[in-house]
């Protein structure tokens, strides 16, 4: 029985829906869905979209000071991609019946949540390497399983995004590797950036499984595929050898290969810091929102001009139609 079939009770629809997503079938915008599923997706996709938008600021900070034209065009293209990712995701979340303007308002007012990682400052050029390498690598590990998410528009947006992330990660690695193998001073900068970005990156996978309040339901609905801790473990396993290759040291003395588990062990995470940043007390929370607000305000004349132009064109068209009659 389909959850869309006419005349079903709420319970029957819920039951049919669980079976439907359980069978790996995809849900499309006009299908019947439980209100909690819709809300959960709106929350997740809009937070994801906001993260892409705010994610432009730490890197945008270095656009005018990139050390070469090659680095500058690459970084510019990456930051543009992040804007694009935000747009793909706003487009996906709008299919769930929310308006993009309302989502923008939530971000501008500081009400909306976004990834905690973007509330840390980019202090030196090496931070741009660290962000591309550490943060985009974490994003890829988070995002690849979302390409199979049960909600069609979200899954399709993620496919487009994942294709683009690979260049982001590589350009970050290239910067990091160049600096790590450069002069002593450059190597120190790379190590310093890794020291500051490592733990916030590890926290990007969210709270530990026993504290993650949305996880179990998201897994049952096939929105989420792997637990936070499983994804985090995968991240550590991928990143440790890459850091070693560059001759950099991950700032966690407990990192050690565990033969028995077939994974790297790692140290305890300071979740109070994570909670502080999520609660708005990170180093850059205030600055990020203010920058976003200023960008929105400074773009106002462009939006007004576009509207005036469209109205003028429409009026001319109407006038010439009258003249022709």
């Amino acid at each position: 029985m389909s959850m869309n079939a006419p005349g079903l009770t709420e319970d029957q629809r819920n039951q049919a829906f669980s079976e439907y997503v359980g069978d790996e079938s995809k849900v499309e915008p006009k299908d019947w869905m439980p209100e909690a599923y819709r809300k959960s997706l709106v929350r997740q996709i809009s937070q994801h979209a906001h993260s892409e938008i705010i994610g432009m600021y730490p890197e945008g900070n270095w656009l005018t000071r990139a050390p070469s034209l090659r680095r500058k065009v690459a970084l510019l293209a990456k930051v543009q991609d992040e804007a694009g990712h935000g747009m793909y995701l706003y487009s996906a979340v709008e299919t769930l019946g929310v308006s993009r303007d309302d989502l923008f308002d939530d971000l501008l007012s500081g009400k909306a949540k976004y990834s905690s990682i973007f509330n840390y400052p980019t202090l030196t050029w090496a931070d741009i390497g660290a962000v591309g390498w550490l943060v985009d690598s974490a994003a890829i590990i988070n995002q690849v399983p979302l390409c199979r998410c049960s909600y069609g528009p979200y899954a399709r947006a993620m496919v487009k995004i994942c294709k683009e992330e690979s260049f982001h990660q590589r350009q970050g690695f290239e910067i990091m590797n160049t600096m790590a193998k450069g002069t002593d001073a450059q190597h120190r900068m790379a190590q310093d950036a890794l020291n500051r970005w490592w733990w916030p990156s590890v926290m990007m996978f969210g709270p530990p499984d026993n504290e993650s309040k949305h996880s179990a339901q998201s897994m049952a609905w096939k929105i989420k595929r792997h637990s936070n801790d499983d994804l985090r473990q995968r991240y550590v396993d991928v990143m440790v050898p890459q850091a070693e290759f560059m001759g950099l040291t991950i700032p966690d003395p407990d990192i050690k290969w565990n033969e028995e588990r077939g994974h790297y062990d790692y140290g305890d995470i300071d979740w109070t810091e994570f909670k502080q940043v999520m609660a708005g007390h990170g180093q850059c929370n205030k600055q990020r929102i203010e920058t976003r607000q200023a960008a929105h305000e400074n773009g106002r004349w462009v939006r007004d001009a576009a509207l005036a132009y469209a109205e003028k064109k429409a009026a001319r068209k109407a006038a010439s139609k009258v003249a022709a009659e």
């Binding site: 543009q80 694009g84 487009s91 709008e94 683009e164 576009a306 064109k313």
Partner: peptide, 24 residues
Amino acid sequence: HVGSVHAIDAEMALTNARDLYTRR
């Protein structure tokens, strides 16, 4: 079908779509 854009009119929708969906 690849997604959607907001625009003031169809002409602007075309250029927005170009910028968003055909960067490569």
